[in-house]
Design a protein around this nucleic acid. Structure first.
Lengths: 334, 334
DNA sequence: GCCGCGCATGTAATCGGTTGCACCAGCGTA
DNA sequence: TACGCTGGTGCAACCGATTACATGCGCGGC
């Protein structure tokens, strides 16, 4: 405010001079106030207040040999499923004075090279990988920062992870349907290799068996998590000789497409066919009928992942896997 | 790879030694290859290739007195409306080797103080403000980086801006409805002070007048952009003695709630009442009936905003306002 | 043969904090 | 009185890149 050179940002030396101490004391006042005398501390804080000083992050990070931030790699940022996970990460990281920077992994070859630049020790202290399809070479590089996998698992990558209880969630959905008397329960699955698909598949089969039922092979359709896949599945399922009376979908987006396809074909839901989804995305509660689905606590998943990464960075022998429970949300579609 | 000390990240000196040149030459090879001899350039590039060197960003930014990134301030990151705008920004910034870091503005007092930390010259070279409700003190601070406003305008803040053609979009929606023979056209608006509300209101009134109609005062309801506001508005509008036959909503989320409320009351859409929204969010095309709405080209808005900020930072006398055209998307609800 | 010019390169200062080490004052103990 | 210890502080090296300035070399013109 009342400085001589108004165009220069105030530095630690300005504060030191004003407070009549050395820069070391200013630095210590900020990072470890307990070890400076009360006299000095007061003088420094007053000077900081006067000047509006705030430390230059580049200089600090350079000296501390850290990046002060974490990189999250997500496919398709525009997908609202991820934004709440990212918000959870941001909560925790912010409390530890860490940035969250977010990069989209599905952006062609030009972008791929950029990713390698980003996933660099000087830019990111750690990586939060939300995309199971990521190129393994990216994270196997010699100087790649520590990685935590979130939700999806990269095939063969042995890094710590935070995942939802996919099997348990699927099982609870099936148990619910079986309890309502359904005996022919179909499934609209995700792509085959995917770790989410595998988990949900396991829960599906386990629960079907536990209810003393059989998996109706023809009514198990492979999708790709997209709305369009749900539309296609509707046509396919309606053409079956032995229609299922309930369908479990591996995610809400497909369930949404399925609902739409069935609706256009004049099928009444849930009377003719019951539908259950997975994820509980925003849209699901607004559909007509509102979608019964398995909720993933996304914000919590983000928080756990961020905490796990921070532990890892602090050198703590972090747990290698955290499984977050899911919850069946009963609405109108089943 | 074949280094002596495998635990230390390679620096510019390592590369220089390996290539048999000075660090200055290495630096020049990377930032301005034309001024180094071909011999030196080849040696340096080979050394970089061997070591997998990449420059430390903190050191570079410290020396260049820049932050290497831009901060975007958005309310509610979980809202998918923003993610595509952010993705557009990220496209452009990435091409200029700039980070995009994103902060949520609606996170209580604790978060507010954190924002002030973030909106700092050493962390961000510029600010992209997507929230019209932001505290003006934040951007009026003496050493706040340059600002570009996006979509919403902060009351009384005279910074360059990128906005959608809100008036034009609303007008085209009304013109469409009037063209289909509607004469009692209601409106579900956003909150009163909001710049989006004002723009859409202007277009609404202009087009109503142009069609030779009157604004049915009782059928203009103030909402708050939320789904719940749409539900409430449905009840209100149905209770009117002189029901409108069409309703223009200031955003899709409210239109969505309105649709849901009307549907539950047994109103057939668009036969009994036509509904038009604004924004074209993801969900809108998936509703039953699919929502007719005014599309904002969100990715483009993001790109334009980022470009404008970069111009501003480069010292270019950037234009002070860019207005991006909107487009009426005809679907089933009108 | 000498001078001047321009190109390629190296030297070293610099960016702004952080922190190991040295120092000093003050006090208690031998 | 001498010695050791402890808490508080300052000095200066350091983090790793960028870049102003200096240097050296080769070449053409006089």
């Amino acid at each position: 405010m009342d400085d001589k050179a108004p165009d220069r940002v105030t530095t630690i030396s300005d504060v030191a001079r004003l407070a009549g101490v050395s820069t070391a004391t200013v630095s210590r006042t900020l990072s470890n106030p307990a070890i400076v005398s009360e006299r000095a501390r007061k003088a420094v804080l007053a000077a900081i207040d006067r000047t509006g000083y705030s430390a230059n992050v580049s200089a600090r990070n350079l000296r501390r040999r850290q990046a002060g931030g974490v990189l999250a790699l997500a496919p398709n940022l525009a997908n609202p499923f991820f934004s709440e996970i990212l918000a959870g990460m941001s909560d925790v990281l912010g409390d530890h004075d860490m940035n969250l920077i977010v990069a989209d992994t599905r952006i062609g070859e030009r972008g791929r090279r950029r990713l390698v630049d980003y996933a660099d020790r000087s830019r990111a202290d750690g990586l939060l990988v939300l995309d199971g399809q990521i190129d393994r070479a990216l994270v196997d590089r010699p100087n790649c920062p520590p990685v935590v996998q979130v939700c999806e698992i990269v095939a063969g990558l042995d890094a710590p992870r935070v995942v939802a209880d996919n099997a348990g969630g699927a099982a609870s959905a099936i148990a619910h349907l079986a309890g309502r008397g359904h005996t022919r329960i179909g499934r609209l699955s995700g792509p085959a290799g995917n770790s989410l698909t595998r988990g949900r598949d396991a829960g599906f089969r386990r629960a079907i068996a536990a209810a003393g039922l059989q998996v109706p092979a023809a009514a198990v359709v492979a999708g790709d998590f997209s709305f369009a896949a749900g539309r296609r599945a509707a046509a396919h399922l309606l053409a079956l000789p032995d229609r299922p009376t309930a369908i479990f979908c591996d995610n809400d987006e497909m369930a949404c497409g399925l609902l739409s396809g069935l609706h256009h074909a004049g099928v009444r839901i849930p009377r003719d066919i019951a539908v259950v989804g997975f994820d509980d995305i925003e849209m699901s509660r607004h559909l007509t009928p509102a979608l019964t689905t398995v909720r993933q606590p996304r914000r919590r998943i983000g928080r756990e992942a961020a905490r796990m990464l921070l532990d890892l960075l602090a050198g703590g022998a972090a747990r290698t896997e955290i499984m977050v429970p899911t919850e069946l949300v009963l609405r109108d579609s089943a």
